[in-house]
Nucleic acid binder design. Structure first.
Lengths: 198, 198
DNA sequence: CCTATTGCGATACGATACGTTCCGTTCTAT
DNA sequence: ATAGAACGGAACGTATCGTATCGCAATAGG
């Protein structure tokens, strides 16, 4: 096996090849050896990156995880069936599929679990994760906003609280390792909607 | 400060003094230096315990945390006002007080947050924490069971799901560092009860 | 009363990861 | 042409991990 020449600097700016190599190395370590083995040392070795470079762009293991999570964006489009409960059912089903990888992508559940864990002892990660989540929930925001406009939402329930209800339920399943399959989405949506309907 | 003589064995059985010293040391480290500094090394040093002894009884940092959490049992009694919403309000308020230490005890929130985090990469902790929680929620079980007997609970809502709804909401606040004060309990209970009432 | 067994504090150990620092090189920006 | 940033690579000191070993103390079982 030929020894490949190391990447070198591309000058006074970030080398995109290095970034790619680090992300790939991290993903491979997770896939092949599990999350426990995802250390800065191991990633640097596998990516043939200097540790200084690694620390410059990803200050901690948590930031690496976050970057990986960030990379796995949903490619799915909007949900708009015209009915609140149907929309929420579709949203929950999609989220459950993403978590468990039954959408053909890498399962997000283990990654998100570790990320939530990491956030408990690192405020930086907590805030970054918070921003990341808001972005991912635009879909849900839109669903709720449209239901509000149609008058399908109980005025006593704020959009913020409705969102919280849905997400907290999924987090609870996630953190207790009891995520149901996507076929449970309708039942879950129905039971949550009881309090939200106009 | 006098140099105390080291504890020695009390024979072929566990030394309760050592157990106490370890628990105290762990609690002190957390209080004085934060959770980051809670390492097996540091606890052994501070408790003047051999590391072998430490590892024999608490195989990991997670088990230490769990033992600490276990030690902080609620001393509060039963809740039974005769009304489901009132009971749930009281339960939530009590839980929020425990979490934030406004009951005069050590705040449980930081400990539980780290414990949940630890459980995400250690199945042993996850199961032990699960048992521990079931014990703590007997209060809530009783509240819901009595409401069922009085016919105050929507028959379409299982007791299990009702419990989940309440706990998942609190966990969500806990993990996002947005725990409300106990005065918010009534509003939270009211909004959750909407779907549970008969 | 004797002995095997167990718990204990203490210490040393190798392994691993952390985070920093330095080097020589490459290329950009001015 | 020069200053400066990014790069791979290596070395460094520090810290923690988890295990092993020692000698002592005290119980449990015969």
């Amino acid at each position: 096996m030929a020894v490949e020449p190391p990447r070198t600097s591309v000058g006074a700016r970030r080398n995109p090849d290095t970034e790619q190599a680090v992300m790939d190395a991290a993903a491979e370590i997770i896939a092949e050896e599990g999350y426990q083995k995802l250390t800065m040392e191991a990633v640097a070795r596998r990516a043939r990156a200097g540790k200084a470079t690694l620390y410059r762009w990803w200050p901690s293991r948590g930031h690496l995880l976050l970057a990986l999570y960030s990379r796995a964006k949903s490619t799915l489009g909007d949900i708009d069936t015209g009915d609140l409960t149907s929309d929420v059912t579709a949203f929950i089903a999609q989220m459950l599929r993403q978590m468990q990888g039954s959408d053909g992508q890498e399962p997000l559940a283990p990654m998100l679990r570790l990320l939530i864990a990491e956030a408990q002892s690192d405020a930086t990660i907590r805030e970054a994760l918070h921003r990341e989540r808001r972005e991912r929930w635009l879909l849900l925001d839109n669903i709720i906003r449209r239901a509000e406009e149609r008058g399908q939402l109980n005025p006593a329930v704020t959009a913020r609280r409705a969102e919280q209800r849905i997400i907290s339920m999924i987090w609870y399943f996630l953190l207790n390792d009891t995520l149901p399959g996507p076929e449970a989405a309708a039942e879950l949506a129905e039971s949550i909607m009881a309090e939200m309907r106009a």
